[in-house]
């Protein structure tokens, strides 16, 4: 964190800068030292922080549920096992009433998506300056701890869901899927171009809106946290007011976090169940 009086824009810029490792035109492979460096890297710029935080959270999710499963006992469930049972039943019932196909992989996928996206969003509640300050002691100056504020992460997950959608569509409907794309809604060969255009736009809008919805919510939420954080340096009264604002927004943000994770899961299940429908 640059000492002295940093302008607000610099402060905001600093908090928006990812830890980028990439192939710089002049310096070759290495860490980007500024947003300009990262921009110059163009395609070969890997957001290390988003990768490591999301992978780490994924490992935590798997380990937690593995431990709960291994220690599962038939007596009165206590502590984490109680929580795990509740979540699994909740997601199982949600998947049952919105997924009409027969596929063993859907409920675990829904559970993974819900808990993993929820954990990723949960990072947004950590005070804005805490982790970057800690990491700057270790010499890492740029850090974004919330993976879901990185469009690459959210669009990547949406792309994975899109590939699953296409796979199941072809696997279950086969030629029917092509027929669906070309002969819906106007069932006549002359309308094929019109149908194809409308169906393909609808098909592509699904993953795109799925990914950008999560990104938009989390990016806007984190931006407001950063803006509130800039109030702390503006004198005592504004600082205290900023504290209350941050607490209020954090409490409201808890609803947004769970809601967005839930919506991402429900929409994935709905899209996959549409892929499984066989007319």
């Amino acid at each position: 964190m640059a000492g002295g009086n940093q302008t607000t824009t610099e402060y905001i810029q600093h908090h928006l800068q990812n830890l980028v490792f990439g192939n710089h035109p002049e310096h070759g492979w290495g860490f980007a030292h500024s947003a300009q460096d990262a921009a110059d890297m163009g395609f070969w710029a890997i957001h290390l922080d988003s990768l490591l935080w999301s992978a780490g959270l994924g490992v935590i999710f798997c380990w937690l549920f593995y431990r709960a499963a291994r220690k599962a006992s038939t007596e009165v469930p206590t502590g984490f096992q109680n929580f795990a049972e509740w979540i699994i039943e909740f997601i199982d019932s949600t998947v049952k009433d919105s997924f009409h196909g027969r596929n063993k992989m859907i409920a675990p996928l829904a559970l993974t998506i819900f808990v993993w996206v929820f954990l990723m969003n949960l990072m947004d509640l950590i005070p804005v300056d805490l982790v970057p300050w800690a990491f700057s002691l270790l010499g890492v100056h740029y850090q974004k701890i919330v993976p879901s504020t990185d469009p690459n992460v959210t669009l990547g997950m949406a792309l994975a869901v899109f590939i699953l959608m296409l796979y199941y569509s072809f696997k279950i409907k086969g030629v029917g899927f092509i027929k669906e794309l070309t002969l819906h809604p106007f069932n006549h060969w002359a309308f094929i171009p019109v149908n194809l255009f409308m169906e393909v736009v609808g098909l592509l809008a699904k993953p795109f809106s799925l990914g950008l919805r999560l990104f938009g919510n989390m990016y806007a939420g984190e931006m407001i946290f950063i803006l509130i954080a800039t109030m702390y340096s503006a004198g005592l009264i504004l600082g205290i007011f900023g504290g209350f604002l941050q607490m209020g927004w954090a409490i409201f943000h808890i609803l947004i976090i769970t809601l967005q994770a839930f919506i991402f899961m429900v929409l994935t299940v709905v899209y996959l169940s549409m892929a499984h429908e066989d007319h």
Binding site: T9, Q13, L16, F215, N217, Y219, L259
Partner: peptide
């Protein structure tokens, strides 16, 4: 409610990107 404010929030996300980046 989450689905309704999907598009506006995407707009908010992009608007904030415009303003700050």
């Amino acid at each position: 409610a989450g689905l309704i404010d999907a598009i506006p929030i995407i707009g908010v996300g992009i608007a904030m990107y415009l303003i700050f980046v």
